[in-house]
Design a protein around this nucleic acid. Structure first.
Length: 485
RNA sequence: GGCGGCAUAGCCAAGUGGUAAGGCAGAGCUCUGCAAAAGCUCCAUUCCCCAGUUCGAAUCUGGGUGCCGCCUCCA
């Protein structure tokens, strides 16, 4: 198939670059996951939803994707928290990993192909540390192993830091056993009461950073296409990862470094350590997943995004129009008054729909500009609403073309439009159709007070009845309406 | 102290050299038995401030001001 040229902003070069996959068709993606010691919050949802869209867009462009996302399930905070609760560290992390996966499922995020865990890759990590020692990039001191920053001249190339300026103004105490203050731990000697694994340097556990180098290398190879994560990971995490990976293998690691902006609550970054977060579980109980995605994707992924109570309710008004347009389209496609003929006027509308679709693809291909793509979806909404409320004959091929675009981008790629609710074996749908049919007969007989009573009483039950030129239709009221009553 | 980013209408927000997308809110109108939905029209001579480059700048350069992130665990 013909592909649109995709341009990606690369943190490494600080500019947009044309995306050229390493292998012809298969795109390797590594996105930093979480340290599962606490609840999954909206800030975690952002990169997940963004990468969900990127993957789906790449696939709609004919690529295959292979997506790896790690869990750093061996970590100081996990150990500390598990000790507080008096349970094993891995049990605590297992609980939060499950919450994380459940949360992402609830947001309609497609799962990664692989979720490697540190605890299951100790031997891979040890092997890489040994490799680094053998290459002269790391050294052992009393059971600890450190990466020697001075052995890697390119250190700082991602975050644009200069080695000699790194420690100025720093707020932590430097471990005196390190040769250089900027050196960082690859392997930490076990302290009493901590989970530990045997290694050539004695019992201990991996430092933060090395797991991503080891696991990305194992599953994606030395060089792969995308490496993603929050902008707060640029330094030191990704900087150190690059140093480890490239020093160990002698090859470049990721081709494109993609970082998303932070999600703020009251002008401050939402984070577990600050305690200012909104959990995904809470939010998905209160709002439809498509609305949450609409909110997350309404701003470009590299910008900061503000959250506050009530924001989603504000966004729901515009979001609703998108959904209404689709519901309207679907009912019109099945309406008997619609023709299969395509007039010259219809051809023009078809032409405009094609233009809008191209604009959507261009927007997504331009550094995954979902905000712009959503704008074009609103253009399509106006186009098709205007068309279907016109007095001329309505053509089914036009409706179907518009529906295809909504389906592909609104539903499949962006996931911001609700899919038509299948009522299944519910009695609700035929029952309501019957009521509306009777009401229509009353209206024909100009028994308006009875017809209005039906509408009012249904309204009290949360069922909104609307009369349109193509017959009456009903829907459930409010943002939280369920698929089934 | 170092590094990076951002500043566009009442609010949200796209736009990185060619004369300000889109959404919400607001005003008017059309359609409708009524209601709802929808549509149409209007709503930034202007993009934080100052200087410069250019035929042309929201977009590039320099200098301010303000805010945010990272340098400590972080998506």
């Amino acid at each position: 198939m013909e592909r649109t040229t995709i341009r990606v902003y690369n943190t490494m070069t600080r500019q947009k670059e044309e995306f050229v996959p390493r292998n012809d068709n298969r795109v390797g993606i590594y996105v930093c996951g979480v340290t599962p010691y606490s609840h999954t919050h909206l800030g975690h949802a952002r990169p997940n939803v963004i990468w969900d869209v990127i993957k789906k867009f790449l696939r709609s462009q004919g690529y295959e994707t292979f997506h790896v996302q790690n869990f750093t399930d061996v970590d100081d905070k996990i150990i500390a928290r598990a000790n507080e609760e008096g349970i094993p560290a891995l049990e605590l992390s297992r609980r939060f990993i499950q919450e994380y996966l459940d949360s992402m499922d609830a947001l309609g995020v497609e799962r990664a192909d692989l979720y490697p865990k540190v605890s299951e890759h100790i031997s891979d990590i040890i092997a890489m540390v040994e490799q680094l020692i053998a290459n002269g990039h790391a050294y052992e001191v009393d059971g600890n192993v450190f990466f020697s920053v001075s052995s890697f001249p390119e250190y700082g190339k991602l975050s644009n830091q200069k080695r000699d300026e790194l420690l100025e103004g720093t707020r932590f105490e430097v471990d005196p056993s390190k040769r250089d203050a900027a050196d960082f731990a690859l392997w930490k000697k076990a302290k009493p009461g901590e989970p530990a694994w045997d290694s050539p340097w004695g019992p201990g556990r991996p430092g933060w950073h090395i797991e991503c180098s080891a696991m990305s290398h194992k599953y994606l190879g030395c060089e792969f296409d995308f490496h993603g994560g929050g902008s707060d990971l640029v330094f030191p995490h990704h900087e150190n990862e690059i140093a480890q990976s490239e020093a160990a293998t002698g090859e470049t690691s990721a081709r494109y470094w993609v970082h998303n902006g932070m999600l703020n609550l009251q002008d401050t970054k939402m984070s577990k350590s600050l305690g200012n977060f909104v959990t995904v579980q809470d939010l998905t109980k209160r709002y439809p997943k498509e609305l949450i995605r609409f909110y997350l994707l309404s701003t470009h992924y590299r910008s900061e995004l503000e959250y506050y109570e009530g924001k989603l309710d504000e966004m729901a008004r515009g979001w609703n129009r998108l959904n209404e347009a689709v519901v309207n389209l679907q009912s019109l496609i099945g309406a008997p008054s619609v023709t299969c003929e395509v007039s010259a006027e219809d051809e023009k509308v078809l032409g405009r729909i094609n233009e809008i679709e191209e604009s959507i693809v261009e927007a997504l291909a331009d550094d995954f500009n979902t905000a712009q793509a959503i704008g074009h979806l609103f253009d399509l909404t106006r186009e098709i609403n205007s068309y279907s409320s016109g007095s001329e004959k309505i053509s089914r091929p036009v409706l179907e073309r518009a529906m295809t675009v909504f389906q592909e981008y609104g539903i499949n790629v962006l996931g911001i439009v609700r899919e038509r609710e299948v009522q299944g074996e519910s009695l609700v749908e035929p029952l309501l159709d019957l009521i509306l049919e009777v009401r229509q007969e009353l209206r024909m007989k100009k028994e308006f007070s009875l017809a209005d009573k039906l509408r009012d009483r249904l309204g009290e039950l949360g069922i909104v009845v609307e009369d349109t030129p193509h017959g009456a239709r009903w829907k459930l009221e409010g943002v939280n309406r369920d698929a089934h009553i």
